[in-house]
Design a protein around this nucleic acid. Structure first.
Lengths: 128, 128
DNA sequence: TTAATAATAAGAATCGTTATCAATTTTATA
DNA sequence: TATAAAATTGATAACGATTCTTATTATTAA
């Protein structure tokens, strides 16, 4: 299936690439709509899905029930705050030992970007 | 707020406790309905929520967009298959070093049960 | 140009979940 | 006991996020 890349799709990809905030479809819609006023939310969803299929973006199923998107596809992990829903990048290679052990133990092949760690972020952490 | 524990709630907790398969509300509904035919799905959701509040169950927001429940609340982690959606328990304390380093690095406080690792399970793993 | 394909907006439909509500059951208290 | 208050329920409406449908327009290929 040949696939063109439409102007809208590229604008969506750009908006997503411009931020490190792991936005939702809605946020991207609001952004791109400023440039393309007749953009529809369905188009955003459809194109985000295509970008993910093409490996140009990742989805994070966050704790807030919404899908968050990330154009930074290099291996890194995500810290997800249970309280405010914030998603923060975390880069480390320290988990490779863990991933290897898991594969030996269970047969599960862990993605190099498959770590999601939930807890409480700096701001939401109960002060001691 | 004093809280009684109804028969239905206990049956729901039992059904959940009986399995290690991290079922959805729907699955639990189907199970308990065999014993209590006039059970309603809303009751299942309502009671699962209460069980989670009481610390008698955990929720896992899985990759399939559904909430999965787990009555085994001792610290353990979850391996989630991207392909078939299966959720498998993983017990380790090896991540405490990682969790500690993350807290130092980022201020994020990682739950002792906050690890979700996604990848491919034994069966869905691309054969080499 | 013509025909086929791709992309679109708008909105309906679906899905998992939560909230509402009136009726019933359970518990507390007089 | 009686009776008021609180908890629980089934049914169903409502909800928010996402997907699907339809009709239309734009792009590409022949």
């Amino acid at each position: 299936m040949k696939r063109n890349s439409s102007i809208r799709r590229e604008k969506i990809a750009e908006a997503l690439g411009r931020t490190r905030s792991h936005p939702t479809a809605e946020w991207i819609y609001d952004q791109v709509k400023q440039e393309i006023p007749d953009l529809s939310l369905g188009t955003v969803y459809r194109n985000l899905k295509i970008l993910v299929e093409e490996g140009r973006a990742r989805v994070i199923h966050a704790e807030d029930g919404k899908d968050h998107f990330d154009a930074h596809v290099e291996a890194h992990h995500h810290l997800i705050c249970k309280q405010c829903g914030k998603v923060v990048d975390y880069y480390t290679s320290e988990e490779t030992g863990l991933a290897q052990r898991i594969e030996t133990d269970t047969g599960f092949l862990i993605d190099s970007d498959g770590l999601k760690l939930s807890g409480f972020c700096k701001d939401c952490k109960p002060k001691a």
